[in-house]
Amino acid sequence: MDARDKQVLRSLRLELCAELLVEGLVIQYLYQEGILTESHVQEIRSQVTNHRKTMMLLDILPTRGPKAFETFLDSLQEFPWVRDKLEAKRNEVMLVALDDDEIPGIPRNALKSPPTDQQINKLARRLGPEWECIVLSLGLTQNDIYRCKVNHSYNIQSQIVSAFILWRQRFGNKATMESLCSGLKSGEVDSSVIQQMFQ
């Protein structure tokens, strides 16, 4: 699920819990469309109150792939007002994100050049297991990740550094700080990590 859609669900979490009854068609529709598995449905139904059932659904949805949010909107036939609220919030978040694409304190021209070895090292020190998703979103393959892990099997930081260097080599002048920053944002990496690369 897109980071912005996750943010929408998070920001409306309590309102959704108060207004949504997941017992009805919502769960069945999400199951029918392959967003929820049978074990997800059982896990949601095992919750004691409707409030908890909705919370469980909201915990599961962000982990269910890129179509989860759209399918969730489609499942809200019985709750058009909830759907309208989600769509309005989503548009609001997208507008903010468009204004927000500038990273404070970082000059525009610095974003057009490729990251230096020093910047990649700084980044590698701050990243955790999410590094794999980030390099995949930048265009590397599972095979590339596997190779980086095998070549540096005892040092995670070296695995991360070699993956980003491989990305820089493979994509040449397309491997800019700007594309790296948007990959980090989509991986929900804190903006302080991005800013630290430029210090």
Results as ranks from 00 to 15, higher is better:
Gln169Trp: 14
Ile44Val: 06
Lys67Arg: 09
Arg52Asn: 11
Ser191Leu: 10
Thr63Tyr: 00
Thr116Met: 05
Asp144Cys: 06
Asp190Trp: 07
Gly128Asn: 09
Glu38Tyr: 07
Glu70Trp: 00
Trp81Gln: 13
His51Met: 10
Gly128Phe: 07
Leu25Cys: 08
Leu21Asp: 14
Leu184Asn: 10
Thr116Leu: 09
Lys89Ala: 09
Asn121Phe: 13
Glu23Cys: 04
Gln77His: 13
Ile60Ala: 04
Thr37Gln: 07
Glu87Ser: 05
Val150Gln: 12
Cys17Gln: 11
Glu15Thr: 12
Ser39Phe: 04
Gly172Glu: 13
His51Asp: 10
Ile160Met: 05
Val193Ser: 02
Leu76Lys: 08
Thr176Met: 09
Tyr31Arg: 15
Val82Thr: 06
Leu20Gly: 06
Ala3Met: 03
Ile165Arg: 15
Glu102Trp: 14
Arg64Gly: 00
Met56Pro: 00
Arg170Ile: 07
Leu136Phe: 00
Lys112Phe: 04
Ala97Met: 10
Pro129Thr: 10
Arg45Ser: 06
Ser186Asn: 03
Val82Ala: 08
Thr71Gly: 00
Thr54Glu: 02
Leu86Tyr: 01
Met56Gly: 01
Asp190Lys: 15
Leu136Lys: 03
Leu140Ile: 13
Leu20Arg: 11
Thr54Cys: 13
His152Ala: 10
Ile60Gly: 02
Gln32Met: 12
Gln196Ala: 15
Glu188Pro: 01
Leu25Pro: 08
Met197Cys: 11
Asp99Trp: 14
Glu70Lys: 01
Leu12Phe: 00
Leu20Tyr: 05
Asn91Met: 15
Glu188Gln: 07
Gln47Asn: 01
Lys174Trp: 11
Met94Gly: 01
Leu136Met: 01
Gly128Trp: 05
Lys89Tyr: 00
His51Asn: 12
Glu33Gln: 14
Val22Asp: 00
Asp101Ser: 14
Thr49Val: 04
Glu33His: 13
Leu127Arg: 04
Asp84Trp: 02
Gly24Gln: 13
Glu19Ile: 07
